[in-house]
Design a protein around this nucleic acid. Structure first.
Lengths: 336, 336
DNA sequence: GGTATTGTGTAGAACGTTCTCCATTGTTAG
DNA sequence: CTAACAATGGAGAACGTTCTACACAATACC
């Protein structure tokens, strides 16, 4: 209990110095002699003192960074977390995650809660809120936004280069000889701007145009069922595509099922590519060609930017992470 | 910034009362007239006051509950989180997640950090630490442990009934007519007791014995590769099993691949069952029979027990959640 | 040899709450 | 009419840190 907690005063008494001196040593502040340093450090070790973060919060830093997760089921968020914690592992900062839920309201509640707990900085992963709301949060605390394109005035941003990712897929398929390449995207329901699927679809269009090919975008949803429905529609056409690029792996799995049911073999009759490189894409039984976002790098970059911000940088930075194409068994040359 | 924050003093000034009175209203404490209640509530709304959690921490509660995650990749932890937050949604408590990592050392660091941030209670999901360490944490803060069987003296526990889950699978397979049913488990490396895979293996043995059948346990690891290797070994035997029960879905996916490669069709030549009912198990292309743990119930139960503890219960409670068998396409009657 | 300057340590006021008294007012009982 | 008591509101001390001022000593400069 609190009564049993070792405080800075206990350490000061033990070392025979003032609490202010102990505080300096703990914080590594200026104005401490080697002798003082040694005395205090010893006392800290002997007593097993750990600073009380909540008490710290009242005056200075809390050495806590918050990561708001919009969707705990997001398949690559563990990678992002690992990137963040990995980067921060040897610093004094601790990372806590806030499950924000899908709703704007619950996400706002979570960011408020994080600010109320005086976190030193926030990383928001794919937040669903208006730019104004984001800006408001950014005035209260340093913020890095992950996974939203555009609009980074008061905060830093880390984005995957979704245009490039889409281009990688199209180039790969065209290189194999495909010309009829369809894209399945997610139906825009909110008016939130710069969401990944929009950018991926746009990247696909650009890349197709660059190759002089006609684009063919179908909007369903990024679910297994959405991919299935979309593929069924595409495959029923007279001039059916020889390749389908789904904007998310989970939808690509649905495309694979549709191909199975239509009696088409992959990749001979139909090439399939996804996006996100989720864990099961690498299972040999699936072996899905996909675009990898390197969540590690994204997370590590976000952490770096956030710490820089906290330590004084005021100019805002947007960092774009290049994705990689992982070619696996679901893409190959078209049969004819 | 802090300077811009609305404090209890601002509210008190606005309402023309003392800070103590405001505090009482905020906490819903005894000794407040209806008039006072109204005045203060209005001032709070007008100013948009929110209590500062860190300041609260110094005296009373912080209304923050921590959930330590041992493995962010754990496929059903999103369900558990949803269960926890769902249960707590209409209370004042906020949930923050701490990525503890796989190592005992990093997990200890995380629990320390959570205690330092004066969280009111902790839910530890599959913690890897000794019972003594757990007990030590439990003396500092109310604790609920999820996913560890046995040894709950100073803290509460919520466990999935893994013995029952294994029995459900065996009963199902025996009911279909199988007699040669093998089990793939995880190789015990640490000496931590009561880990789920151990209990599942034991449950499998018990159930086989109850049916008068010989058990056949092979220990590899709970990975796709582990399942693959294990199945390859089992399927190479003269008297190969007609059903394989993998202790985890991820391993079951490896079993399916081994069956593919051996030219065996599922479920005609080989029935396969897993455990955990991970998301992709329900994809039609996989359609894996599995045991579902109902993470929602587990999470909600853990949250309930924790709040009860915080609010005074001292007797320790262990709650066992019954799993369900989800029969899908990978299990069927044996061919002969 | 006096005055800056630098280095090192301490006192004590914050920070925003909660919580334990205590004071004041009504109200009730005798 | 007075004593006892309940209900309500407020003063002010915590809680464990950080941080600004300042004191003092030792050194450097002219």
């Amino acid at each position: 209990m609190t009564s049993g907690r070792v405080t800075i005063a206990d350490v000061a008494r033990r070392a025979g110095v003032s609490t202010a001196a102990v505080s300096k040593v703990v914080r590594g502040a200026y104005g401490v002699s080697a002798e003082m340093q040694a005395k205090v450090t010893q006392a800290i070790d002997e007593l097993g003192y750990r600073p009380h973060a909540a008490a710290r919060a009242l005056r200075g830093r809390t050495y806590t960074l918050g990561v708001m997760l919009s969707d705990t089921r997001n398949p690559f968020f563990p990678d992002i977390i690992e990137g963040v914690t990995g980067r921060l592992g040897d610093t004094e900062y601790q990372v806590l995650l806030g499950p924000g839920g899908i709703e704007p309201k619950t996400q706002a509640r979570m960011t408020d809660a994080m600010i109320d707990r005086s976190m030193d900085g926030l990383i928001l992963i794919s937040p669903v809120m208006t730019d104004a709301e984001l800006a408001a949060i950014a005035t209260a605390v340093p913020v890095v936004v992950v996974g939203r394109h555009g609009g980074a005035a008061a905060y830093d941003a880390v984005v995957d280069d979704d245009v490039m990712g889409a281009r990688l897929v199209v180039d790969h398929l065209v290189g194999l000889g495909h010309t009829r390449i369809a894209h399945i995207t997610h139906l825009e329901r909110a008016r939130a701007q710069g969401l990944p699927h929009t950018v991926r679809a746009e990247g696909y269009r650009q890349a197709m145009r660059a190759h002089g090919l006609a684009d063919d975008v179908l909007a369903t949803s990024f679910t297994e069922e959405g991919g299935f429905e979309g593929a069924r529609e595409l495959l029923a056409r007279d001039d059916r595509p020889t390749a389908i690029f789904a904007g998310a792996d989970i939808a690509a799995l649905g495309v694979l099922r549709a191909a199975d049911e239509a009696g088409l073999s992959v990749p001979e009759d139909l090439s399939v590519a996804g996006y996100d490189n989720i864990g099961i894409a690498s299972l040999k039984r699936i072996s899905l060609t996909s675009v990898d976002q390197d969540g590690h790098v994204i997370g590590a970059t976000a952490a770096r930017l956030l710490v820089e911000r906290i330590e004084g940088r005021s100019r805002s930075v947007t960092s774009s992470v290049s994705p990689t194409l992982i070619v696996r068994g679901t893409t190959g040359p078209p049969r004819h």
